[in-house]
Amino acid sequence: MDKLINQFEFGLFFWQVIIFVGLILLLKKFAWKPILDAVNEREQGIKDALLSAENARKEMENLQADNQRILNEARAERDAMLKEAREMKEKMIADSKNEAQAQGQKMIVQAKAAIESEKNAAMAELKSQVSTLSLSIAEKLLKEELSNKESQTKLVEKMLGDVKLN
């Protein structure tokens, strides 16, 4: 211990402290601060670059997913539209078919009604004609037969027979 204490040299201690503290201060200003700043900056730069690359990758993935989704949506929409169009076409055909049928039916009914009314009119006409005719016949006959009683009767019978047949 005595030997150790004897080794202590104040002059050397003085120089060492001056040189060492001076070295710390000088290096702090001219070396450590710029070095650590540069290293930190570089590390931050690398970190940022990695982060932005990762972000870009994610964005790309999102974009691709979006594209896929949009494509799928478009495909589905197209399918839906096609299906709708087909359905519409079928419906239209069916509708027009039904309408045509209904129209035809209606026309047939109308025609039947017209025929019926025409027939009735014709019948009425015929009846009035027949009555007029029979009246005129009767008049003629009466005129004629009134002169000949026998032939008159015969004629009436004959005519009546004809009428009945009709």
């Binding site: 000088l26 290096l27 001219f30 070095i35 540069a38």
Partner: peptide
């Protein structure tokens, strides 16, 4: 001093 200031 020379080494580290040149590094800086």
């Amino acid at each position: 001093f020379w080494l580290f200031s040149s590094l800086a």
